[in-house]
Design a protein around this nucleic acid. Structure first.
Length: 732
DNA sequence: AACCAGGAAAAG
DNA sequence: TTTTCCTGGTTA
């Protein structure tokens, strides 16, 4: 080492969790080295934070050497792979967010960066205790049988059916010696041959195509499309089996990990062990273990929510995105991203296959498949015993419900017949509570939330008026707060509680179960109810969106959609797409018993193209119509990224911020800066391209915010950035 | 004079 | 993002 290099401090640049557009430079203490991708602890202001070494040596950031602070610790932890580092950079650039904030998502396992503590174990020796009891006998026999495998103290006691003191006694007598065991694996390794599937022809062909991709061992994007019950899961399980056999790691993404016990059960049946879980509610200990073992490469399959995309896989060999159309893949705070799209990028950078799976693919994924950017595999038939239901629209103008009711005679008749046959019916209405609006018949007062100006929803079971945006609730008053009149409050419109009430007036002896996400008793109760339904302990099920996802209802032969128009009129450019997906899923719940089954969709717009497509099951017509909408400019075209700055505070830097983003953004993007007055109006009129990013308006708080802005004067709420839609072409 | 909220600035 | 600093306005 020359004299020069002794005086010049060796430096590294580190991604730290700040909104800084560049990494920060730190000094490397003598004798310490760190490669790019190493995980380090560094001082940042008054605190210590975890960061990722980005570059080693002079990076041209030109910081005053006196200002440099030293790296505190280089963690003894696997270095991030080059493809992971490229992924961080890519996501940062694409989403217009600071690289350090993306890095922060990777380092979301605070205690995982040090090696796991080894576990204390006991191994059998040749010593035998002087006094042998039957309990001791059992322990020694068990240990001898499994020798040379070592046991944990409690594991051995438990397995031999003795108390801990028996084991302790043997250890004291020298029959066991203390050894250290490697940390226990979070899950057992999956066995690709545990439960081989029985695939029908079209499944087998699709599975073959996917396993071919695994063998080819390079990037390939596939859309796997097939109606509910066509067996998509079995098909991609074969791809997983192939990847696991090849010794590669697999990431399976699911939209709502909390609700996916059904998936885990199926996985376990196929592979003999569950996948490692990853989601935001994971207990810290588990979280840490999974992160570490994924980084070390010892976990083979992870099933996770969108954040699993940022796990530091050592050797990623396959990515699956199940229910790829699901809006839960969108993250709409901090770093805005759609995990489905980032999954494609992740696979591209890791040079491994990615499979997008859906019965009702999103329009942009369908478009990519059509254009040949994704291979399109289709499973077009259901298993032999499961026929799709016949679906029909019920014109509510021709078949009006009884006064004060919401169920048409046609639907009631079908329900009666289903009851007669002792089969199950499902009524779907995407509205919780009793009624979405309450008003005073005397003075016209409408009950609105004091915080966010949304209507308060009556929940009659609970005797409350609730705001579904901010969670505010109050008891239902007896008198109108405006005019003081008693007993003149009227409920307007239906919620599932009201539909349940109406159902019981028609079928007083039917066993009715109401399912919604806010049900008392939580997830546990929900699962019990689902089991009861599967056992045939209900005749009529009434539910919200919840019933569209996950659980199957094996005895169901009638599905009634109470109000198909509900989702079509909310101003969201994706309303049609979402309605199509939701109704397809809901009507797909029926028809698994091999009996004749029926779907009835109540609507006031029987000529609406989307609803007609739902009824005829003609997905092609639906997608063609959607693509035409984009062509006509009613929806933004593909292939552009948009971002909008809505500055609600007139901050003078908003414009500068916008200009900076504009400069940093990819050339295909379109960024607009709008002030507090014009933004909501532009949004409403659709003058600006952020009709596209009305993704933002899916957020309840954003809607409430905009409503407040339109109704009143500018309302200081900080600077809000709504951004990002898909730019499918730039992935490939 | 002490206290507080809220915004701006800095962090290597 | 998190923390500190600064300011203007309030309370004691």
């Amino acid at each position: 080492m020359s004299d020069d290099s002794k005086n010049v401090p060796r430096t590294v640049s580190v991604l730290v969790p700040t909104p800084s557009p560049v990494p920060y430079t730190y000094a490397l203490p003598d004798g310490v080295s760190a490669d790019p991708g190493a995980i380090v602890q560094v001082p940042l202001g008054p605190r210590q934070v975890a960061g990722i070494v980005w570059e080693v040596g002079d990076n041209g950031n030109d910081i005053d050497p006196a200002k440099l602070r030293p790296v505190t610790t280089v963690f003894d932890c696997p270095t991030l792979t080059p493809d992971m580092r490229r992924f961080i950079a890519w996501v940062s650039r694409y989403t217009l967010s600071a690289p350090g904030m993306v890095a922060r998502m990777v380092l979301r396992a605070p205690a995982a960066f040090e090696p796991e503590a080894p576990v204390a174990g006991l191994a059998l020796t040749d010593e035998r205790p002087q006094r042998m009891t039957s309990a001791r006998e059992r322990v020694v026999a068990l240990a001898a049988e499994s020798s040379p495998m070592a046991w944990t103290r409690s594991g051995l006691a438990h397995a031999a059916g003795v108390s801990l003191s028996v084991v302790d006694g043997l250890a004291a007598a020298g029959t066991f010696e203390a050894v250290t065991l490697p940390p226990t694996a979070i899950v057992a390794p999956p066995d690709p041959n545990h439960g081989p599937p029985d695939l029908h022809d079209s499944q087998a062909r699709a599975a073959e195509a996917l396993t071919g991709d695994i063998q080819a061992d390079r990037f390939a994007a596939t859309l796997l499309e097939g109606v509910t019950g066509a067996g998509k899961t079995e098909v991609y399980f074969e791809a997983i089996a192939a990847a696991v056999s090849a010794g590669r790691q697999v990431l399976v993404m699911l939209p709502e990990i909390a609700l996916t016990q059904a998936f885990i059960d199926r996985f376990e049946a196929r592979f003999g062990a569950p996948p490692a879980p990853w989601h935001s509610d994971l207990p810290p200990k588990t979280r840490e273990k999974v992160w570490r073992q994924v980084a070390e490469g010892s976990v083979e399959v992870v099933a996770g929510a969108r954040s699993a995309l940022f796990l530091p896989f050592a050797d990623l060999g396959l990515v699956i995105v199940d229910e790829e159309h699901d809006a839960a893949y969108k993250q709409e705070d901090r770093v805005y991203y759609n995990a489905r799209d980032m999954a494609v990028v992740r696979a591209k950078l890791a040079d491994c296959p990615v499979v997008l799976v859906s019965a009702t693919p999103s329009v942009e994924t369908r478009h990519n498949a059509l254009e040949g950017r994704y291979r399109h595999l289709r499973l077009d038939r259901r298993h032999a015993d499961a026929a799709l239901p016949d679906v029909a629209l019920v014109d509510m103008r021709q078949n009006p419900p009884a006064r004060g009711g919401f169920l048409s005679p046609v639907l009631l008749d079908a329900m009666a017949q289903t009851l007669e046959k002792q089969e199950q019916s499902l009524l779907f209405l995407n509205r919780r509570g009793y009624a979405p609006l309450t008003l005073c018949r005397v003075c016209g007062h409408r009950f609105a939330c004091e915080n966010c100006s949304a209507w308060l929803v009556e929940h009659r079971f609970r005797g409350q008026l609730q705001c579904h945006h901010c969670g505010h609730h109050e008891p239902v008053p007896e008198a109108c707060p405006e005019c003081g009149t008693f007993d003149h409050l009227v409920a307007c419109g239906p919620g599932i509680e009201r539909i349940a009430e109406e159902t019981l007036t028609h079928f007083p002896d039917a066993r009715v179960i109401v399912l919604s996400s806010d049900m008392a008793g939580g997830v546990k109760r929900l699962r019990l109810e689902m089991e009861a339904i599967a056992k045939g302990e209900a005749d009529i099920i009434i539910g919200t969106q919840l019933v569209a996802k996950g659980h199957n209802f094996p005895l169901l032969t009638l599905v009634g959609v109470v109000d198909a128009d509900l989702g079509l009129a909310n101003g969201d450019p994706r309303a049609a797409e979402r309605t199509f997906q939701l109704l397809s899923q809901v009507t797909g719940r029926a028809g698994r018993t091999g009996r004749q089954s029926l779907g009835l969709i109540q609507t006031f717009q029987p000529d609406h193209a989307v609803l007609k497509a739902c009824a005829s099951g003609d997905a092609e017509a639906f997608y063609a119509a959607q693509l035409a909408e984009r062509e006509r400019g009613r929806m933004p075209p593909f292939g552009r990224l948009a971002a909008v700055i809505v500055s609600a505070t007139n901050r003078p830097d908003a414009e500068a911020h916008g200009r900076a983003l504009r400069a940093a953004a990819p050339s295909s993007s379109d960024i607009t800066v709008l002030g507090p007055a014009e933004a909501p109006l532009a949004m409403v009129r659709g003058r600006h391209r952020f009709r596209l990013l009305v993704h933002g308006s899916e957020r309840a708080d954003m809607q409430a915010y905009l409503r407040a802005m339109i109704a009143t004067a500018p309302n200081p709420r900080g600077s809000v950035r709504v951004a990002v839609d898909v730019d499918p072409q730039s992935f490939l």
